[in-house]
Design a protein around this nucleic acid. Sequence first.
RNA 1: GGGGUCGUAGUUCAGUUUUGGUUAGAACGCAGGCCUGUCACGCCUGAGGUCGCGAGUUCGAGUCUCGUCGGCCCCGCCA
Length: 587
Amino acid sequence: MYETKLRTHTCGELNGKNDGLNVILAGWVKKKRDHGEIVFIDLRDRYGVTQVIIEEGRGDLKEQVKNVRGEFVVRVFGIVRKRPSNMVNKDIKTGEIEVVANKIEILNESEVPPFEIKDELSVQEELRLKYRYLDLRRDTLKETIIARHKTIQSMRTFLSEKGFLEIETPVLTRNTPEGARDYLVPSRNHIGKFYSMAQSPQLYKQLLMVAGFDRYYQFARCFRDEDMRSDRQPEFTQIDIEMSFVDEEDVFKITEGLMKKVFHDVISYDLETPFLRLTYKEAMEKYGSDKPDLRFGCQINDITDMVKNCGFGVFENSDFTFAYNTKQLLSRKQIDEYNDIAKKYGLPGLFYLKYTDEELKGSIVKYLSEDVKHKLIEKLDIKNGDTLFLASGKWKRTLEALGACRRKTGNDFYIKDNEIKYKFLWVTEFPLFEWNEDEEKWEPCHHIFTMPRDEDIEYIESDPGRVHGKLYDLVCNGVEISSGSIRAFKKEIQERIMNVIGLSNEEAEKRFGFLIEGFKYGAPPHGGIAPGLDRLIMIMLNRDNIRDVIAFPKSLKASGIMEDSPSEVDEKRLTELGLKLIKKKGS
RNA sequence: GGGGUCGUAGUUCAGUUUUGGUUAGAACGCAGGCCUGUCACGCCUGAGGUCGCGAGUUCGAGUCUCGUCGGCCCCGCCA
C-alpha cells in the first residue's frame, strides 16, 4: 500500500492472497511471545498488526531478538504464509497470515515505556499527557486522530463543491474588550502594545463579505483565555463559515448538508435532515436547557397554575413551578443527589413526589387536593413506581436547575454508551438582549452585530427584552456544536442596538472601528455559522472528553503537560519587550 | 474566584474512616531461567517504594491537622 525504501508493505494489509510473497515490514514491537524453540513477534504500525514468526532452527534470529523488548523499532524480511485455519486470529485484519522471518534488523531501541501501550489499560491522564506520543500509539486515540482528518477532508470537499472559498485570516489581531478574555502577545516592535490572539475570525469574515467573497470558510484556530471544561480547550478549531445574500434558512440548509456528509463519510451514519427545530423558549420550558439532549424524554411541565393556590407557601409565592417525571423509582440517597444539583444551580432545593401503591407520596403531598393530584397524575403521566421532581422560583433559574436534574436522569437511566444515536436540532429565536442584574443594563446575548427578527425591530427601544435575534444554535445530544447568526449589516440597525446597550458611537468606533468603517462601503446582507470541530468529533465518536480528539491538548489548567508550557522566560526577553513582572504576594 | 475528588512500586489499585504501632501488599509490567503454535501464551525465580511536596501534633504519621503543588469533574466564566 505504502511501499518505501525500508518496507514493501504496511502491518495492516497482508492477507491470504499474499501467501508466499516476499515482504519487508517495519514497525514497533507490540509484543514478543517467546516459546523457546519458536518466537512470535506482533509488529505494529499505524495500519495494523502483523504476526511475525521465528521458526525452530533459526537460532541466529533468536539470538538477535533476545534483547528486543516492546516498542523497539524493527524491520523484518520474510515470507507471507497462510495460517492453518485453527490458528487464524479473527481479531486482527491480518489474522489470516503470518510472516516467517528470514532476517530481522533492529532500527532503534526503546526504553521500557512508562505505561503499557494497549487499549484496555486505564492510566492516569497526567501521565498519558506527558507521554502523549506513546498514548497516540494506542488504537482508541489513534482512531480519533484519523477520524479528525477524515472530517476535515470531507468538509473541504463539501464546501469547496458548494462554491465556498477557503481563506485564512490573522491569528495575531487586536484586542476587542467584549467577550472572552483573549491571549495577549507583546512584541519588541511595539513596546507597550499587545496583539490579541483571535478568539474567532468573526470580524474578518464579515469584512470578507464586504469584499465580495460571498461564500467563505476556514478551519480557524481560536484562542480563549477562559477556564476549561471537559468540552473546552484554550485553543480549539472552528469550521468558520459565512455567506452573503442569505437568511437563516440558507445557513440551516448548508449546515445540514455538511453534517449529513460528514457523518456519512466518517462513521457511515445517515443523518435525517432537515433537523428538528425548537425555539429557545420551547427548549427551556420543555428541557430546561438551551442545548437539550433529545435522546430521551422526561419533559418538563409548567404546573404553576395547578399549584398556585394549594396553600403551600413556596408554590404560592413563586413566579413559576415546574416539574418533570423521571419515570424511575429513586432511593432517598439518589434524591439527595438531585437536591445537590439543584442547589448548585442556585435553588434552595427540590421537592419530590413518589407514586407507589396507587398513591402519591412526599412531604408536600398534604398540600395537594385530590383535584390537583389527579391533574398532576394526568399531565405528568404518572404511573406506579415513578419519582418526580418539582421546583419553584424564577423562570430561567428554575428551569436550568431542573434541566440539570433531567440531564442526570438521562445519564443514569436512558443513555446507553453502546447505543449511539444522534439527535440534532436547531435552537432558534434567542433573545437579542439579556438584562444584566448586577450592572442594571442590557447586554447583547450573542454579539452586537446580530440582526433582530423583522417583526421585532420596532420594539428595539421600547421593549428590548421582547426582541429576538436571527440567532441559532446547532445542538446534538446535549452539546452545543455551533452557533451563528444573520448579521446586522446596516448602520441604522447597528446604531439602534448600540443605543440599547449603552455603547456610544465613539466607543463603538474605538472597539470595532475597522468593521464599522468597512460596513460603510456596501456591506451585503450576510450571515454564518461556526461549528466547533473538536466537539463535533467528540459527539460523532461518542467520546466524553475533548482532549481525546486533539493530538496535543492542554490540561484543565491550560498547561501543556508534555512540553511544560507555559514557561518562564529570561529577564532579557522581558526587558526587550518592555515588560516587568510584578511579584505575586507570598513569593 | 468557588465547590468536589484523586495523588502509595514503572502502571492500575488495596492499606488511610471502625484502630496512628515491627518487615507497606496484590495484579500487570520489568529482569533472569524453562517452554514447538502463541496471539491477555504458560511455568519458576527475582528486583523494584522520598506513600505528591512542606510544616505541625505525637514516644511514633501512608494513616490525624494545616498549608502547598498537580490531574480530573462541576459552578461562575466562555459576546
